[in-house]
Amino acid sequence: METVLFGLFIAYLAFFTLQFIYYGFIFSRFSFAQPQEGTPKSIAVSVIICAKNELENLKKNLPHFVSQNYPNYELVLIDDASSDDSLELLEEYERMYPFIKLVKVENNEAFWGNKKFALTLGIKAAKNEYLLFTDADCRPNDANWIAEMTAHFTAKKTIVLGYGAYEKIKGSFLNKIIRYETAITAIQYFSWAKVGKPYMGVGRNLAYKKSEFFNVRGFMDHMKIRSGDDDLFINQAANAQNTTINFNSESFTYSEAKKTYLDWFKQRRRHVSTSKYYKTFDKLQLTTHFVSQFFFLTLAIVLLAFQYNWILVAGILGFRYIFNWIIIGYGCSKLKEKDIIFGYPLFELLLMITQINVFITNLFSKPVHWK
């Protein structure tokens, strides 16, 4: 038994080391970074929003997009064969605002229910080289959203990763978990972009030049995969030379988070099902992070239960939590998510359990995507 416990203790130290490397040398790159002020520009931009049966969200959010404080932009609105009154509302907006271009997508048997097909038509219809993407259920945090996102384009930086936040719901524990997961994900993809290994972005807030889209043949290499119009595209097109990040609060977008655990669980299933198509290195680093996190905590419980070197084990466990808490705290503060910081230990555990549940569920059934 002593030999077994010694082996578990060595493994415990190894997983702690991996966690320390992730948080101390990678995630800290974002958490301790200073916001970079972009250079204000007046480049022509096409803002692209794809909608499918989003009538209520469009009513609520479109006013924020037509009132942007930016001199040179068009708003490309894509109706992806909606069965509600979304198209009628979009047509009304098109009549009211000359800078709106409406793209009407009819059901195509080969691409039925595929958001990537609709987005491709919208991108081709856009008249400008610079493209800025968000979703119909999102609103910009500020009237300077377009100006703030485009300010980070340079001659070399042709992809800008932004932050898509969720609205706070007072008194909702689930809302805090969802926002925690969203913030942690952002800390990860922002950090890896700063390290020079960008691997994903979110369609709720993403900008790139049209040339980047055509350089990788658009979504063709993963068109049959229903999800991934944002993260799979970035995983394929982004690199250390062409990608930058923007985490100034004026650049944020906000959308309503799911209000039930089941709806959020379904959303997580869609997101996780896409990551298996990432590049090998990106899948490896994501898997290594989760595995080291899971087994570090599991082995800590086992070793403490047997009181094996319990003072050292408990000391390492406490150090890990305090150290990671600092890194996560600074990162969440940059993302204006301070209220979730104090729930870190519990949120981490609950999110880990959810991720395991998602993985197991996805093994036996396919998640539902864009309809």
Rank of each mutant, 00 (worst) to 15 (best):
N309V: 01
N357P: 00
M223A: 14
N235G: 15
F9C: 06
E129V: 08
D230R: 14
K259Q: 15
N175D: 15
L18R: 04
Q267H: 13
A143S: 13
T260A: 13
I169Y: 14
W325M: 13
S292F: 05
F65E: 01
I234Y: 04
K194E: 07
I49F: 03
F16K: 02
L262A: 14
Y93K: 10
K210F: 08
G162T: 06
Y189K: 13
T185Q: 12
K127D: 06
W310G: 02
K41E: 11
E106D: 11
A237C: 14
L312Y: 02
K124W: 10
F117S: 11
T280R: 08
R269Q: 14
W145N: 13
F32V: 08
T134L: 06
N128I: 05
M200Y: 03
N175V: 02
E167L: 08
L284H: 11
S211F: 08
A14H: 09
K197T: 10
Y254D: 08
G38F: 05
F265H: 11
T39S: 13
S191E: 02
I311H: 02
I340H: 04
T361Y: 10
V45I: 15
F295I: 05
T260P: 03
F20E: 10
S82K: 00
F25L: 14
T3C: 06
Q267P: 00
N61Q: 10
S46A: 15
C332E: 05
I177D: 05
F252A: 06
H289C: 05
E54V: 02
E88G: 12
G113R: 06
D80G: 02
G164M: 12
Y254P: 03
Y166Q: 13
T185M: 10
L161W: 01
W310C: 07
T158G: 08
G171K: 15
F342V: 07
N128D: 15
Y344M: 15
S273L: 05
K168Q: 15
F364Q: 06
K170F: 07
